[in-house]
Design a protein around this nucleic acid. Sequence first.
RNA 1: CGGAGUGUAGCGCAGUCUGGUAGCGCACCUGGUUUGGGACCAGGGGGUCGAAGGUUCGAGUCCUUUCACUCCGACCA
Length: 419
Amino acid sequence: MKFSNMIIPTTKETPNDAVLVSHILLLRAGFIQSIGSGLYNFLPLGKITLDKVRAVVKEELDKAGCQEVHLPIVTPITLWEETGRADKFGKELLRFKDRHENSFVLSPTNEEAMVNLVRQTVKSYKQLPVNVYQINWKFRDEVRPRFGLMRGREFLMKDAYSFHASTEDMIREFDLMEETYKKIFSRLGLEFRVVEADSGAIGGSGSKEFMILADSGEDTIMVCDSCDFGANVEVISEEATECPKCGGNLSKTKGIEVGHIFQLGTVYSEPMKAEFLNENQKLEPFVMGTYGIGVSRLLAAIIEQNHDENGCIWTKESTPFHVDIIIAKAKDERQMEAATTLYNELKSKGIDVLMDDRADKKTGFGVKIKDFELIGMPYALVIGNDIEEGKVELISRKGLIKEELKLEFVVETLMERLA
RNA sequence: CGGAGUGUAGCGCAGUCUGGUAGCGCACCUGGUUUGGGACCAGGGGGUCGAAGGUUCGAGUCCUUUCACUCCGACCA
């Protein structure tokens, strides 16, 4: 895409009410816009990035055999009454009435709705197991929304629900989801820990959280120095110093919760009478698991872990564009022509390119470089005076390393780096 | 929900104490000069000063009420 056609409102100044670095940078680089407490517009860059992250989540889930569906955000409160959560959930659950005075909620999570979907369609053990998910907007009327996308009221979440004929099979799926989540967060280029967690209001017998390691994290976790054990302080004493798994040293650190998986058992299927017929022709409640990933929160988490004093540093699979072609002097026809040729060539190879073709007199070279650094795409190609000698400059965003490249090697060099 | 703070142009702010026809920087528009690290000069557009009520000859400024937003805490699948 061309920079000149996009709405990318970058700013030099730090917005007055943002504290967290990811919040500040996402606002300053023109990814998001605040529209109310805990509510954000996703501008073109933010929307592209969100879709990229979403695509990684979807790909890995589909590979693991999950099926995507889509549920309405508005659900009748009668569903929530079936499990008693209409009362349990409290004020976080936003309730309202339609014109016929019927009560509805804006879904903060969808256990009831998904159990309802499956109980109407799956009747036999022969149809099991199934794992059904959606990537959809959720609403929680948080007491205190804060930190930008980290704790908004409306947020994009992937929620998956698995249904099984036995606990053993549910645990098998739980382990598969743990592996799938590890693949997702690794692909997104994140440093994370899987920790033992409290099941909280979702209920069930066991759960694990996926924590992005970052000082700004809202959760405190204990991690082992010598094995992969980790636990949220909610489930292990903060004073504990010895790893219960290997006896190694435990140390305290901060994490951002981006995923949580639960072994639910029958806590929802029983009250909702979601049952299947087993081999002995007897009705049994489904044994369930549930698995969440905070997709919009991931954007904030990626930036918390990947930024410098100049701006964002997106990882390869999350960046809105792989390359920013900076035309130093956009009024120079030779530069514009060379840039356009490169742009088309790179695009034809499947590389996502932004071309900074802004030619107005206020947008000089400096502005373009600063915007590149602020937005944080992995690479910039500078097309400048050296184009006369067939040379361009390649800048890597991480470390801001500059290299001179001959024009004819640009495409293959980028193909290699982005592979 | 407790504590603290802020609402003045798209963004960041001054002006409020001490009432007298609303200002600065960035952004935006026009013209010119610049052109490899957020340019310069000149001109210009944009505001029911969060809202309602009150005091006053006169309110951004004083009084009352209210709404919104932010920060700390409690809460959080």
